[in-house]
Simulated scan of single mutants.
Amino acid sequence: MTDAALLREKNYSHNVVYEFDRSKQIRTFILESSHRALIFVCEDNLGSEEALLDLSVLEKLLESSPVTYNPGGVVDALSLVAKGNIERVILDESVFDRDVVYLQTVGRNAAIEIRPDDLRKILADLGFDSESDKPKLITYDFGYA
C-alpha cells in the first residue's frame, strides 16, 4: 500500500504533486535499535547527515545503543507505520511551522502534499500518540539541535 492510498482510505486531504518546493519536503529515515524507529526530518534542516544524525543524541533519545540508520531514506513511510513495522516515530517539530509539507512517495519525482496538522492526525490514527505509553510520537526539533 502506498501513502497516497492509505491517506485516501482514511479520508485525509492530500494531493500527489510533481512540482513542489523541495525545501518543504520531509525526508524519512529508518533507525534500527532495540526499538525500530522512523524519523521525519524537514529537508531544510538536513544540512549534512552528520548534523542530522548525531548518533549519541539519538541513542539518548531512543534510550538504546547502538543506533544505525538507512542513509538512503525511505518512501511511503506512513505505510510502514500502518503495517506495524515501526515502534516509535521521531518527528521534526519544525514540520508544524509550515503551511504544507511534502512526503516522499513512489513514482518519479512525485510527492504527497499534506497539511502538517493532518500528518499529526494520521500518525495519531495509526497509534502514535504523545499521551500513550507505547507506541509513542516523540517530537524533537532538529532545527535547533
Rank of each mutant, 00 (worst) to 15 (best):
residue 93 E to D: 05
residue 17 V to M: 13
residue 72 G to L: 11
residue 129 D to K: 09
residue 2 T to L: 06
residue 97 D to V: 08
residue 21 D to I: 07
residue 25 Q to I: 07
residue 78 L to Y: 02
residue 22 R to Y: 10
residue 138 I to C: 09
residue 91 L to E: 07
residue 67 V to P: 01
residue 134 K to E: 15
residue 9 E to Y: 12
residue 133 D to G: 14
residue 19 E to C: 14
residue 109 N to E: 11
residue 126 L to P: 02
residue 10 K to C: 05
residue 108 R to H: 06
residue 9 E to P: 02
residue 23 S to Q: 15
residue 44 D to A: 10
residue 53 L to R: 05
residue 130 S to Q: 11
residue 142 F to I: 08
residue 80 L to N: 13
residue 40 F to C: 08
residue 105 T to M: 01
residue 82 A to H: 12
residue 36 R to T: 15
residue 7 L to M: 08
residue 55 L to D: 04
residue 15 N to I: 00
residue 140 Y to I: 10
residue 73 G to D: 04
residue 29 F to T: 01
residue 100 V to E: 00
residue 4 A to Q: 12
residue 72 G to V: 05
residue 127 G to C: 04
residue 57 V to M: 14
residue 4 A to D: 07
residue 136 K to T: 12
residue 104 Q to Y: 08
residue 43 E to D: 14
residue 1 M to D: 09
residue 136 K to S: 13
residue 125 D to R: 11
residue 138 I to D: 00
residue 30 I to C: 09
residue 52 L to C: 01
residue 12 Y to I: 10
residue 92 D to S: 04
residue 144 Y to Q: 12
residue 9 E to C: 07
residue 6 L to C: 05
residue 52 L to I: 03
residue 102 Y to V: 01
residue 3 D to H: 06
residue 110 A to Q: 14
residue 70 N to F: 10
residue 24 K to W: 03
residue 6 L to K: 02
residue 48 S to L: 11
residue 116 P to W: 07
residue 60 K to R: 15
residue 29 F to V: 05
residue 35 H to W: 10
residue 59 E to K: 12
residue 53 L to N: 01
residue 28 T to E: 14
residue 7 L to P: 08
residue 17 V to T: 02
residue 92 D to A: 00
residue 34 S to P: 03
residue 81 V to P: 06
residue 99 D to H: 12
residue 76 D to F: 00
residue 94 S to K: 03
residue 128 F to I: 00
residue 103 L to V: 03
residue 143 G to S: 12
residue 72 G to R: 08
residue 133 D to R: 12
residue 31 L to Q: 13
residue 39 I to G: 00
residue 122 I to M: 04
residue 62 L to A: 08
residue 94 S to Q: 12
residue 75 V to E: 03
residue 71 P to L: 06
residue 33 S to R: 05
residue 14 H to Q: 05
residue 18 Y to A: 08
residue 84 G to D: 10
residue 110 A to Y: 10
residue 61 L to D: 04
residue 67 V to L: 12
residue 36 R to K: 15
residue 110 A to D: 00
residue 16 V to W: 03
residue 137 L to D: 13
residue 68 T to P: 01
residue 3 D to Q: 01
residue 13 S to C: 11
residue 48 S to V: 10
residue 141 D to I: 04
residue 140 Y to W: 05
residue 11 N to F: 10
residue 23 S to M: 13
residue 24 K to L: 15
residue 25 Q to P: 06
residue 122 I to F: 07
residue 48 S to K: 14
residue 63 E to V: 12
residue 81 V to Y: 10
residue 13 S to W: 09
residue 107 G to A: 08
residue 71 P to W: 03
residue 106 V to D: 06
residue 15 N to V: 07
residue 118 D to P: 02
residue 118 D to W: 02
residue 56 S to A: 15
residue 142 F to D: 00
residue 89 V to C: 14
residue 80 L to Q: 14
residue 103 L to M: 04
residue 49 E to N: 11
residue 83 K to V: 12
residue 77 A to P: 05
residue 73 G to T: 04
residue 10 K to F: 08
residue 71 P to V: 11
residue 92 D to P: 02
residue 39 I to C: 09
residue 80 L to R: 13
residue 38 L to N: 11
residue 23 S to I: 12
residue 53 L to S: 01
residue 13 S to T: 14
residue 3 D to F: 06
residue 72 G to E: 14
residue 7 L to E: 05
residue 123 L to F: 00
residue 54 D to M: 03
residue 13 S to P: 08
residue 51 A to E: 15
